[in-house]
């Protein structure tokens, strides 16, 4: 495949991705922003660890895992509240959110415990 072809393909891919994503409900977009924020924080911490070293390993671990965990949980929530996803018809969004909150509370309790 020629280089020009690839770039054009990629360009068209990006545009189609953008258009497809534009159709996403705002509620899901909020979640996406949240996920993105969490992942960025995780990345920052990993880069920082690369510079400083992994000495307080528990702090590093809890810092990064809290971000990753948040992101993963948000993705789970996103799957459940996504109306296009037919798998979760019997889970109401309110229930999904309540579960999400519970899961997060547990996660952050553990993180707090592990941080120090």
């Amino acid at each position: 495949m020629a280089g020009g072809g690839t770039t054009s393909d990629v360009r068209s891919l990006v545009s189609s991705l953008r258009s497809a994503y534009a159709a996403t409900p705002v509620k899901l977009k909020i979640i996406d922003v949240y996920v993105l924020y969490a992942l960025t924080t995780a990345l920052v911490q990993v880069v920082y660890m690369g510079f400083v070293g992994s000495f307080p390993f528990n702090a590093f671990l809890s810092g990064v895992l809290s971000c990753v965990g948040t992101a993963v949980l948000a993705v789970c929530l996103r799957m459940q509240v996504n109306k296009e996803n037919k798998e979760f018809r019997d889970i109401a969004p309110e229930r999904a959110f309540a579960d999400f909150v519970l899961c997060n509370v547990v996660l952050h309790l553990v993180i707090m415990n592990f941080l120090g």
Binding site: N58, S62, V68, Q80, E87, V106
Partner: peptide
């Protein structure tokens, strides 16, 4: 998606809890 929900939180939470 159920598989994702069943596994991903387990790994994160489970690892943290195990490390405790």
């Amino acid at each position: 998606s159920r598989l994702y929900i069943a596994y991903s939180p387990l790994v994160i939470l489970g690892t943290l809890l195990a490390a405790l």
